[in-house]
């Protein structure tokens, strides 16, 4: 699998990451190398195998609909990079 500039930009945008010229080169090379390496799995015939979607040994782990103590308002906002007394603040979403 070859990762070119276009694909790198697409993936980076989905992951909300950005790269400059040199780090982009490095990332493309690393990704190409690793993805080519993992393509080894294509050697295996998996036609009649179900994908394994959970490693849990439990099913129907549910809880009752009961309110438990919350996080206090102060603690909720405590680690916020930007906030006021009530809200978290982020740069405005441009539509």
């Amino acid at each position: 699998m070859n990762i070119d500039k276009d694909l790198l930009n697409k993936i980076a945008h989905l992951a909300r990451l950005e790269f400059d010229e040199s780090t982009a080169e490095e990332m493309m090379a690393d990704m190409t190398k690793i993805l080519t390496w993992v393509e080894k799995l294509n050697e295996l015939d998996t036609d009649n195998v179900e994908p394994l979607t959970t490693m849990s040994h439990e099913v129907n782990v549910l809880r009752e609909d009961e309110v438990k103590p919350h996080l206090s308002h102060e603690r909720a906002l405590k680690n916020a990079p930007k906030k006021d007394s009530d809200y978290f603040r982020v740069p405005k979403v441009l539509e």
Partner: peptide, 9 residues
């Protein structure tokens, strides 16, 4: 008039 958006969870 604000440069921020406010978020309430």
């Amino acid at each position: 008039g604000e440069t921020d958006s406010l978020v309430d969870f």
